[in-house]
Amino acid sequence: MLVMGEVHTGLLQSSGEIPESACRDVLHLMSGETVRLSRRPMIYAVSPDLLTGVDCRLPSASRSRIRGVGTVVSHSSITGGRVVQGSSYARVERAETDRRLAWSHYLARPGVIEVLGKAKSSDLGDGFIGDPQPNGLDLGSISARFMDVVQSSPLLDRRAPFKVARTKVRWVAQPGDPAIRFTLNADQTRTIRIAHSGDFTPAVVDLCEDLALHDWLLTTLLLIVERARIGGRAGPEVVAKLAPAVDHLLHLWMPAARVDEALVPYWHGLEDRMRFTAQWERLVRRIRDQLTLNDAAMLRSARHP
């Protein structure tokens, strides 16, 4: 019927970027399962997929009582040794019977939530993207826990170079003519609706995680520039405020680097509309200009003390 997911993204609670070996240790969430890691174009490490069992009300725009039983798939990941994500999703499918079955039935279909009774996929999707109901399926809490498990690792020094809130992206994927819609909501949550041709594959999850990562980078860079109050305080102070961006963020922008080739057009489609990269590059130029100006000023004062 449809797939629902939620990705939380934040700054790793560590003073500097952590090396590959530490990524592996921090993400080692299950014995006997290796942490998958890729080094190109930048280090990306992801924990094994873990399941969480649920039996609860599913979101519904019409506020119908729809019961779903099954499992949610989650994992934690670290990009560039610096940005942490907790990501969860579940495929929602119609059950063959209206009765709750033995748990072994649901574990034979990992990552599927079966709907007991009648439900419309559009009603579920709109409900999930819209106002979440209390006591309904809470993918947000599950993803938050998968982020917390990394952030609370004893291997991290917990001295992040700056404070920034985590971002939350809720997404829904349904079969249809290829389309994507990204919405920034007033409450700081973001929502993505994806229509994909053919069957759902986990590549859609990678796409949403990549979008969430870049949305967080952009949001964070905007915040750092805003906090620096360019023009509102002395040059060296501004530069000191902008320094963390240079040290920790600027090299991480690499849109669609991990996205399946078949889904890259979704990124391009969004770029055409939202001009993410253009905005990022403008901010980067602004930061570099400040650094250049400050260098020049320092040079001048060194020559003419």
Binding site: T52, G53, D55
Partner: peptide
């Protein structure tokens, strides 16, 4: 480590 607990009704995560 591979046990996934059988959820009681109203287990929403």
């Amino acid at each position: 480590d591979r046990l996934v607990d059988d959820p009681s009704p109203d287990t929403n995560g």
